[in-house]
Design a protein around this nucleic acid. Sequence first.
RNA 1: GGUAACGUGGCCGAGUGGCUAGGCUCAGCUCUGCAAAAGCUGCUACAGCGGUUCGAAUCCGCUCGUUACCUCCA
Length: 498
Amino acid sequence: MQQKLNLYNTLTRKKEVFEPLHPPMVGMYVCGPTVYGEPHLGHARSAVTYDVLYRFLKSQGYKVRYVRNVTDVGHLENDADEGEDKIEKRAKLEHLEPMEVVQHYTNIYHEELRKLNVLPPDIEPRASGHIIEQIEMIQEILNNGLAYEANGSVYFDVKAYNKDHNYGKLSGRNIEDLLGNTRATEGQEEKRSPVDFALWKKASPAHIMRWPSPWSDGFPGWHLECSAMSRKYLGTTFDIHGGGLDLMFPHHECEIAQSQASNSHTDAARYWIHNNMITVNGQKMGKSLGNFINLSELFGGTHETLEQAYTPMTVRFFILQAHYRSTLDFSNEALQAARKGYTKLMNGLNILKKLEYPEETEALAPDEKLNQELLKLTEDCYRGMNDDLNTARTIASLFNLLKKINSLNLGQISMGQLSRGTFDTVRDTYQELVTDVLGLQEEPLGDMEEMLDLVLQFYKEAKENKHYDKVDTIRAELKKQGIVIKDLKTGIDWAYEE
RNA sequence: GGUAACGUGGCCGAGUGGCUAGGCUCAGCUCUGCAAAAGCUGCUACAGCGGUUCGAAUCCGCUCGUUACCUCCA
């Protein structure tokens, strides 16, 4: 495949050819969730987006180290002021240890992502497990004169930093605008400037989650964990940093500032990737709007805006049918359409399993034009992926390919019109992209017990009609599945074979 | 208020100077015991107004509308 992957880099605001720093190794860091609540559609979009990037890079032969963190400390209700820690607030509410909250929601997050066929990252570090690394980084920034201590807390000195660096280079802001727009917030007396952000916060006496540091018993600022952990596992400069568009400012901006101000002196990542938001009725799903749709509600059909339950693969397909940098509007109609599209793609997968190129028929009536057309379609599939992970285009091309596969299956196109090479390319492309790269897999069929009842019904009829050959066949086939039929006086039943 | 982005056919959603995106829906045809699936055909759109150009949905300007970030959020 001589096509090259292009990625849109927020840092440069344009699509760039992806060239890893140390091929074939690729280092990739993605901002994971703060585990204080149920995972929702937005988490799914982010996870699926970077899962596809991860899968695609691997399919292209890269050796990827994928790090996705779990934020379990330091994420305050309000940034860098006197807000409560999200985790701790939840813990108090539910009368739990903060780490119980963390574990609980981390487990659910993992479970839901597994349903969505999202591969686990290679390393999943937690902020609370990297306090030492974070303290070290703060010390570096202090030593470099770009942070200051105030009453046991340490703040990043944005104005000082901005003298030699560009604070706002990622999100396209400038410090004057920021200063002009910062609203007066209470409890910020310690900060020299409203734009400064916390690297370390001194804990109030009531605060449970606290660690010793040179400055105070306290906890690290939210932005710091990502800088410290990405550096620890991927180095001072790595290839890809991903996350939601809403994290661009201030979170990612601060990450870059911290990395530059520390002894790393880098932007941390070379390609900064941002996925767009999910909207509901044209409005962003947001905490303050209270219009979140949790994944459990989606899979269970329990949310009030849902007309029905949607399976994880329907949701995955729905996400992939849009480009990751576009907002994706949620609606029942769109999900239902996604369901059908998904099943269509799966039917194609099943057809391909059964289709074989006949051994002896080596292109009886080769149709050069058709072969060319099919090969072009397979290239289109990859062209979509390479063009900034445009899964929407890839899926469109896969549907075009699927039409031909269906025609082949129905004999509207004969196998002899294709060369073996064309057929293999078509099959391999379809299978690889659908299952390995897009990560779409078959979902279990309906109720197995109901199907079994149907078989038992046929068994009963066969027996009544004394079609003993059929009776024997049914028994034998079911036995292969580990099921035995029991002819009881009271009726017919089944049991697991012991 | 500051800064961005977007406005595509009944719905969703790609594209981006000239060539059919695709999915869903709807109508018709082929196939078919009936149906379904599949294939084929049709519904041929790019907010409005100007401009650049041989040619614009695609570039530029203005107008209208929507949204996002600037505060917690993936």
